[in-house]
Amino acid sequence: MKNNIRYICLILSGIILFGFGNNAFAFQEEDLIAPRLSLGYFKDSQNGPHLRVKARVRAKRGYDDLANLKVNVYQIGEEDMLLGDITTGMDGVAIFKLDEGVFNRADSSGLITAEIRIEDQKGYEDSSADVEFSALQIEISFAVEDSVGYVTAKLTNPVTGEAVSEEDINFYVRRSFRPLTIGDDFYTTDEEGIAKVEIPSDIPAGFDGKLTVGIFMDDHYLFGTIREEQEIEYGPIPTLDQAYFERTMWGTRDKTPLWLLIFPNLIILGVWGVLLYLAYKLYIISKIKN
């Protein structure tokens, strides 16, 4: 009897083990997703210096964005250091803000290496992507010379203190949807790392009199994609069209022109006053004695 029970237990555990093992095996073989990762270094006024992760997955036609993927972010050096983890959003993009410590750990030439890794994520193959970049210091200054405004950009390597010369940068003013390039598409920095451009005097500032000028470097092999912006006081202030706030024929009912409120209402009151009076007179007729 006891033997029998032992046998049954053995067989059952065998089935269970075999079954599980088999399942796990099938999962690994068929269902593991191999995401395509890309990583870049960015800097802008909204997020500061940051890494931008884009995860995609091969689909029937082209690629689909891969949402909800968790990746670990490392800084590579003598010892790899885990900086944290991030998860991609609906568009497959995740942004990892970099703090000062990352830049303090740069090597003597200012070079930083970052890597993202998918590690032990259920359903995903382990994979990684890395990027090498260097911080770039952009100083924007604005000056008016002979009543013409100039924006000057000075590029230096913050670690070595050397001027960054022979680099192409784009000058722009910030606008609602897309920035507007000022001057030529690109200006090359000189040996002092300086480029200078005139701001057309007729570019309107905001209603507060402020204009946001910026420097843009697009997908540089070393400095990444960088936007550095600065608010200056320059440019004509546009005049706000007051039509919306005035009483016009095109206004809403709380902005009906006064004459259109007064005269029709006077007529309406006058006519309906008489009508009500005449209705009241009907009552008088029914009550009158003689």
């Binding site: 606008r175 949807f177 507007l180 706000l240």
Partner: peptide, 20 residues
Amino acid sequence: YFGDMYEDVVTTGTETVRLS
């Protein structure tokens, strides 16, 4: 092209120009 008249700029998304 689309934009804000006060900013005097319109853009197609790829090309950004002065409206005036």
